[in-house]
Design a binder for these strands. Structure first.
Lengths: 88, 88
DNA sequence: ATAGCCCATCGGCAATAAACGATAGGTCAT
DNA sequence: ATGACCTATCGTTTATTGCCGATGGGCTAT
């Protein structure tokens, strides 16, 4: 992975809320946006924005699943990130 | 390490130039700001600013050494970061 | 003590990020 | 086809970032 891509991922993780979201998603395996909104003191639009950033970095993927939107961790990428971090 | 601290570190690494600086410092063991300025297409003030961010995050430490300022990687923290990334 | 080197910091500017409320689009059940 | 639910996106505001040139302070050597 090149440094630009890696930097993008780090940037995505460079916010406490987004780290917490990633932890939560890993724990829950998959969940909908509403569940995440409930556990944070931020508005739905703010959480949605954080999720968008995480999606753009590739760490999180989301699929529309009926009326709900299902988010989950991209575990392969997460593993790859861990490898790349070891290389720094 | 709490998520706020971890986020700060990720944020510091969330720029390609700063990742490259970290790699370079790890390779060189220690070096002065001027050396780093030479290898990047940015001004001295810009590089200095990047170094400041890296210092604030703790990844890099710098000591004044005569007329020059010597930067080096905080290897213990870097190792700790790698552990913490594994925990995400 | 003057001149030169190294670099941190200031001020400025443009771009991006973080948060919000409001809106609107999609899906399901009735 | 209406209403309820879920969430992405828009528009706005304020804060932060990224970059620069210029300034100035600390050392060293002359």
């Amino acid at each position: 992975m090149d440094d630009t891509q890696l930097a993008k991922i780090f940037k995505a993780l460079g916010h406490p809320t987004r780290i917490k979201i990633v932890r939560y998603l890993r724990e829950m395996d998959r969940c909908i946006c509403g569940q995440i909104v409930e556990i944070f003191p931020y508005s739905q639009s703010t959480i949605s924005q954080h999720l968008k950033l995480l999606k753009e970095s590739g760490i999180v993927s989301g699929e529309v699943d009926g009326p709900k939107n299902c988010y989950c961790i991209n575990k392969e990428l997460l593993e790859r990130i861990k490898e790349d971090v070891s290389g720094i």
